[in-house]
């Protein structure tokens, strides 16, 4: 009984799969989708995002250079302070 019902479910679903195989979107569906896609776009945001993506490598390089410059400046300042202190001690 149980396996008969099991087979009946499988057979019915297989038949419904075949019978619904000809389903397709109503006419003009692709056009409606493209209109919805166009309506969802913000030209300003798109342009800003694309421009921002182009800026990422330049911003990374600038950040690396800024850190290098800061470290170098720090060392120079330490060296200047140390030599000033040495001069005071000699005096």
């Amino acid at each position: 009984m149980s396996s008969d019902v099991h087979d009946a479910i499988d057979e019915r679903l297989a038949r419904l799969a075949t019978d619904t195989a000809s389903l397709r979107p109503r006419g003009g569906f692709d056009d409606r989708v493209m209109q919805a896609v166009a309506a969802s776009r913000s030209p300003f945001a798109d342009g800003l995002f694309r421009a921002a993506r182009g800026f990422v490598p330049a911003a990374l390089l600038a950040a690396v250079l800024a850190v290098g410059w800061a470290v170098q400046t720090g060392h120079d300042a330490d060296r200047a302070l140390a030599s000033g202190f040495d001069a005071m001690v000699i005096e």
Binding site: R15, L16, D19, L23
Partner: peptide, 15 residues
Amino acid sequence: GVEGSADARVALAEL
């Protein structure tokens, strides 16, 4: 309102 055959309409309702 299903695009496709009449059988597909009936089958979708049955499913």
